[in-house]
Design a protein around this nucleic acid. Sequence first.
DNA 1: AAATCATTTAACTAAATGGTTTAATATAAA
DNA 2: TTTATATTAAACCATTTAGTTAAATGATTT
Lengths: 113, 113
Amino acid sequence: MVNHNENQLNEIFQALADPTRREIVHMMAQKERTVSELAEPFDMSLAAISKHIKVLERANLVKRRVTGRTHLCSLNAESLSQATEWLRFYEKFWSNRFDLLESELLKAKKNEH
Amino acid sequence: MVNHNENQLNEIFQALADPTRREIVHMMAQKERTVSELAEPFDMSLAAISKHIKVLERANLVKRRVTGRTHLCSLNAESLSQATEWLRFYEKFWSNRFDLLESELLKAKKNEH
DNA sequence: AAATCATTTAACTAAATGGTTTAATATAAA
DNA sequence: TTTATATTAAACCATTTAGTTAAATGATTT
């Protein structure tokens, strides 16, 4: 159960580690896109893009709706939230939001003894 | 300049895509750690951990301080903020913080014509 | 000076990744 | 019913990744 989550995170971060895929995410966020639409800006074969989309799908970052011969892809943003959640813990270590930092320090002090 | 940033993001997300490395990040966040300390919880050679640390270093996620024969590693959390920044844009697509969503919708409406 | 300790480097391996091209599948249009 | 279109699948390739073991480097300790 914890492991499932771990795995999901692996795949999400892995998916986001490629600039082509980040661009695709960005395009899908605006609105539903067909595969060829997503491929258009890139100097790359359609098959390559198809694979990139599959990687995003494995990470549960895209919803796909097939209608006839075209596939419509859109962002499943809830999955992104998992990455954000993981990162949130570390915000206190860099954030300029000193209020957050302060409350964390207080918590730490309370648990000190 | 935009590209430098892109590259940085690639490396950060790549680094975070591995559960061993995420664990190492977590350990470093608590306090400075030696390489062997970081290796201890894992059923893996020291050399493997040394490599993992190097990946994190390439992503600029760790600061290393060499003192004698021991290396002290700590988290460079500012780098994590870059990932958070990238993700922040997409928060409006999933967040339950409806205020944020609302203000974004307003912005969109204003630019409509 | 010799032995030990902390760490990295090198050489190797298996598997994964990111791309290609060509073929296959399924739908739509002529 | 043939032809064109949208997409995936398969086979291939080069590179990267994540691990290994063994050797090298550089402090410390004895």
